[in-house]
Amino acid sequence: MKHIAIIGECMIELNGKPFGPMQQTYGGDTLNAAVYLCRGREANLHPEQIKVSYVSALGADPLSEGMLTRWQQEGIDTSLVLRDERRSPGLYLIQLDDQGERTFLYWRNQSAARYIMQHPQIADIESALANVDMVFLSGITLAILPDEDRVELLSLLAELRQNGVEIAFDSNFRPALWPNDDNATVKFIYEAMYQLTDLALVTFDDEQNLWGDQTPSDTLDRLASLGVRRRVVKNGADGCLVQELTSPAQIVSTQPVERVVDTTSAGDSFNGGFLSAYLAGAELVNACQRGNQLAGTVIQHRGAIIDKIHTQAALNA
């Protein structure tokens, strides 16, 4: 069995128009990926070969209880989710334009997940992570932490990697979460993270925004220079570009989507689909194909996590 631990934050999601109809659910980039990974796992020949644990902190309130129950119903192991009696989950509002593009409003500064590294039981989590095969996190995971806690997490990842744990990372750059206007801080943090990364699952738009990359190939080259062995650059409707070590880069195309409804979880669902195949032993190109297939379905529906029926239809197509 392969065991992956996904570190991050899940928040309450409100989706709709202010003072108009809204849907309440939950979401967060890493949690979305965990859900789609579990659903992708069920499409594998031997789904029991992958265990998916989510690493985060929640409150002791009814919303936290409801979220935990729903994660378990998705097949996510929640034994590494800490509970914080003093704090509650963060909240975000998604607003969509006519093209399906989204803008966000957040209320997360005092969320339980933001202070996970200060939790009295964090040492238990760190010990448990020494026994997993892969740890996956995103730039948002890093961004929400206080500075000293971020350093502690990077140190933990370095130790885990040294002891044989594979580290996967999606940069998922969100400028609003990084207060330094010149991006010096985030570049410093990301370079440190990439030097600890075995598998990068990044989005070209994010990399271009932060680093000024002109093409996805530039992104591959920069990641390679930092020591990332397996590199996937997601590029929207153009599919993705994938490369391992010094092998030639390959384009993995995706099927055109006639009507994009909501791009909220495009990259997250790609990650989940990709990892469900990759952890089952698929080649990088085949894992990218599953990621593309799932993301292409998700963006045709509203919300970060679509219903299981449409997910399974995409995975079984």
Rank of each mutant, 00 (worst) to 15 (best):
I189T: 06
R230I: 00
L68E: 05
V257E: 01
L210T: 00
G75D: 03
A130M: 14
F169Y: 09
F19P: 03
L58K: 08
S269V: 13
G8A: 03
L294P: 03
I50Y: 03
I50Q: 02
A200E: 05
P47M: 08
Y278E: 09
L177C: 01
L196Y: 04
V233R: 11
I189L: 01
I125N: 06
P47A: 07
C240F: 11
L153H: 02
Q195H: 06
G75N: 02
V298A: 04
Q23V: 15
E13N: 03
V261Q: 01
I76E: 02
V52G: 03
A143H: 01
A287T: 07
A143W: 02
K234E: 05
M67L: 05
N209G: 00
D182H: 08
A282Y: 13
S269D: 09
V285P: 08
N163R: 14
M1R: 12
D238Y: 11
E101F: 08
L284A: 10
R83L: 15
S79L: 11
Y278W: 14
E13R: 06
D198C: 00
R302H: 06
Q300F: 14
L80Y: 10
C10D: 04
G90I: 02
Y36E: 09
N209T: 10
S79C: 13
V132P: 07
S225F: 01
C240P: 13
Q121Y: 08
A249G: 13
L58W: 09
S247G: 13
V285W: 06
A176W: 00
E85Q: 14
E152P: 01
R222Y: 02
F136A: 14
P216F: 06
T264H: 06
G75K: 02
M193L: 00
D181C: 00
C240V: 11
A168L: 01
R229M: 07
S171M: 11
R102G: 04
T141Y: 08
R70P: 12
A143I: 00
D206L: 01
A184I: 00
I167N: 09
P175Y: 05
A192Q: 15
H310T: 14
V55R: 04
D198K: 02
W107G: 00
D198V: 01
T25V: 09
G16K: 13
T185L: 03
L145H: 02
D149H: 08
I306R: 04
G100Q: 02
L284W: 07
L245V: 10
E244A: 11
Y92F: 06
E126M: 14
N286Q: 11
V242K: 07
G291T: 15
P62S: 07
I251P: 11
F104G: 05
V55S: 09
I251T: 15
Q110T: 10
E159N: 15
Q195N: 04
A168S: 13
